[in-house]
Amino acid sequence: MKCAALTGISAEVIKELKRGRPRTLEVQSAHNVITVSGVDPGSHLFMTDVDRDDLAIGDNGIIVDVLSIGITMKRIIEFSYGSHFEERERMAARIQVRYCANSSVKEVSPLETIQPTTVEVLKVTCCHAG
């Protein structure tokens, strides 16, 4: 199954999702916001704790069902010494997801700077003793 991938998600968040309850996450890294912007509610999404640049065949993660998505822009203005100010904008994506299955990366699409991260994944249905 080919699907979008969120990378660099904390292992604790993935463990919490495996408990089966829907959770809302906020992602702020540019590559994850770009990926979320191309996903629709009702679709599947691959999530892993592996960094985007290190994503490779065989990496493990989970598949989640996307329940809702919201993308927001935050503007921050900082004043200093009364005459100098700095204005910044930060885009963030909030996404509500529910655990579907464990999975493993079968193939990674070429990683481009301003494109969503996509992978081909396999559902893992059994555990291997190590």
Rank of each mutant, 00 (worst) to 15 (best):
R90Y: 14
I76Q: 14
V50R: 08
T72D: 15
R75G: 11
S104K: 08
D40M: 15
V33D: 04
N32E: 00
S83I: 12
V97N: 00
V33L: 07
L67W: 11
S83L: 14
L55Q: 04
G58N: 15
E16R: 03
K74Y: 13
G58T: 13
I69K: 10
S80M: 09
A11Q: 15
V27Y: 02
V119E: 02
P41S: 13
F85W: 11
K123C: 04
C127P: 04
L55P: 03
M1W: 02
P22R: 05
V119P: 00
L45G: 01
T48W: 08
K15R: 06
V121Q: 00
I14Q: 04
V121P: 00
E16F: 03
V121N: 00
V97L: 03
E12T: 10
V27I: 07
T118L: 03
M1Y: 05
M1K: 05
G82T: 08
N60M: 15
T24H: 04
R52Q: 08
A92H: 06
V119A: 00
Y99P: 02
E112N: 09
T35D: 02
L67G: 09
V64L: 08
P110C: 05
V97H: 01
S10R: 08
I57V: 14
M47S: 08
C3L: 03
A92K: 09
S37R: 08
A129Y: 10
R75T: 12
M73F: 14
V97M: 02
V121E: 01
R75M: 14
G42L: 15
S29K: 10
V33P: 01
I69Y: 07
I57Q: 14
S83K: 14
D54F: 15
T48H: 10
H31Q: 07
E112Y: 07
F79W: 12
V121I: 00
E87D: 06
P41F: 15
I71R: 06
M47A: 10
E107W: 03
V108E: 00
H84M: 11
G61S: 09
